[in-house]
Design a protein around this nucleic acid. Structure first.
Lengths: 158, 158
DNA sequence: TATTGTTATACTCTATAACTATA
DNA sequence: TATAGTTATAGAGTATAACAATA
């Protein structure tokens, strides 16, 4: 019996109740999307005042872990086109968090580096992001959290 | 030991290897995002030729399950602002999949309905979406798939 | 010939603020 | 006063196509 069938007796009179979601709640795509929206909102609240998005945080982590990486490599790592990387780096460079250095042996490309301020910000963000992660997983046991990560990694291409 | 430490011996010579992802792979936010990108791409391929996004599919399901619902209620159900709903419905109405009918007892609002073509399209899409769901979960047992849905629903606000 | 960064362009999704009509 | 739909506007994020500089 669906939620709708449970309430069938009261219908047609007022029509001000929770909507039916049809097959949506059984779909991975829909359920994943809902979880991601919740996560995004909590992330934004967690880093409030630092004006950083999850994507920008990822870029800072990636450059920190791979100093000297160029924009095309960064795009590949993030799964976006290199033309998309331009504006992303422009924003971070304008905020003096990332710098474009001349690449040692390829004058076509830039070596991306965190500035001192970028490193400082990343250092501030990491504990906030860990707190955010703990909060969104607060209704999961450590084992369930590990299992969720494992199941998510098994979605999509082998 | 991290993946980076394993390879430390070969570094500094060539510098053309897979990037390090730092703490990213341990984060729910990052892992969820990766899974969602994979899902989105597979969905697009699955409904190829029907020119429909996951969000638009959700709107068709919601209107089908709640005929006569208005735009504000739809926005609430989708978790987006009512101003965002306008363009979404404009697109679907221009394609004659959804119609704005006068609402019976409130002249400010529209009663949203699927057109005959909208119902036909939804009927075509449902099996394609089920096939897509099966494909993205092909490396999950039925029990693991149920568990993933359960864990995802426990992310975010209680 | 191929690659890197860039620009121009376009489209989706999202929000806020303000407006009109109606409740 | 409050609500429904709309518009204007803005910003992030994404892509494709073409270009100059360089490999």
């Amino acid at each position: 019996m669906t939620a709708g069938e449970e309430r069938r007796g009261q219908v047609a009179a007022v029509r001000r109740r929770e909507p039916e979601f049809g097959l949506l709640p059984q779909l991975l795509g829909y359920t994943l999307r809902r979880a991601q929206v919740a996560l995004f909102q909590d992330f934004t609240a967690a880093v409030q005042g630092h004006d950083i998005t999850p994507g920008q945080f990822g870029v800072l982590v990636l450059i920190d872990a791979n100093p000297g990486l160029n924009q095309s490599e960064l795009g590949l790592a993030m799964g976006v086109d290199r033309s998309t990387v331009v504006a992303v780096i422009d924003r971070l460079e304008n905020r003096a968090l990332v710098s474009r250095q001349p690449a040692p042996r390829d004058r076509r490309s830039y070596a991306l580096e965190l500035t001192a301020e970028g490193r400082r910000l990343l250092g501030d963000l990491v504990p906030l992001v860990h707190a955010h992660e703990a909060r969104v997983a607060e209704r999961l046991s450590p084992d369930e959290r590990r299992q969720l990560l494992d199941l998510l990694r098994r979605i999509g291409p082998a």
